[in-house]
Amino acid sequence: MAEAIAFPPGADVAPPAPPAPAGRGRRRPNVMSVIWIIIVATFFLLPLLGTAVFSLWAGGDRYNLTNYAALVKTPEVWASLWLSVQLAVYTVVISLTLLIPTVLFVRLRAPWLRPVLEVISVMPFVIPPIALIQGLTGLYSVPDAPLAMPIWFVSRPEFMVIGYVILSLPYSYRALDVGISALDVSTLTQAALSLGASWAQIFTRVIIPNLRTAILGATLLTFAIVLGEFVFANILLFNTFAVYINYIGQVNGTEAAALSLFSFFVTWLGMLGILAGGGRGQVRTGGVG
């Protein structure tokens, strides 16, 4: 579960909060609450502020956008970002291809398998990334590996996608499972079958459109995980975005600050996407139910 993605509240199907009562004496926030919130806010905003200021520092007393300009002009930034994006796309495609039919068919045909899926989906927490990459290389890529894969494949960054699919499994599975739970899949399927639809039609015309928000959530989460992934790439010496930030950090602290701030806002955008998607999904399932 290290350095992984956690669902923001609201992306989840949480029981609605009880209606707001006007409790006696509870309208006014008390002093202790205010002080506590200020302490917490300070702790969380100071590093962001520090990073922002640091990223604008251009030596001496000068503050400007030099660092950002330098980064934009560095081809390695773009190359590493592009590599991470490519890997993220592969991971998303494989994850969705594996998971959507599985989650759907287990729900429809083998509900007794659901607890098994639940257990599998938390296994990547039990076998953390560092252990997973050790096991993967030990089994598939070291010279005397028992199940050695071709060298041209294991020497490419794409090899890591195999593991990324596993790393993102808890999040992509949960996003899809929550989405499918909100639909009454078996009734929808029976209705479509009774209207004469084929399985392919049911899948493309009924299930996928109704799962749009869940799929969007799974995609964004997987994307965020792969973009921020450092363990695999650092061990296997591939120049992904996170590895590049670390490298820049050793050379130029202010540029690293700029990239860190950029990462923070990318994460924020991803979360906003999930929250917005979740909100729309709830409205729509409300209409269906």
Partner: peptide
């Protein structure tokens, strides 16, 4: 919270180094 819980790893380290 959703963002910060996921803002770990290298960028977080540099945010603290910068601060």
């Amino acid at each position: 919270s959703g963002v910060a819980a996921n803002f770990a790893g290298i960028p977080l380290a540099f945010a603290f180094i910068s601060t």
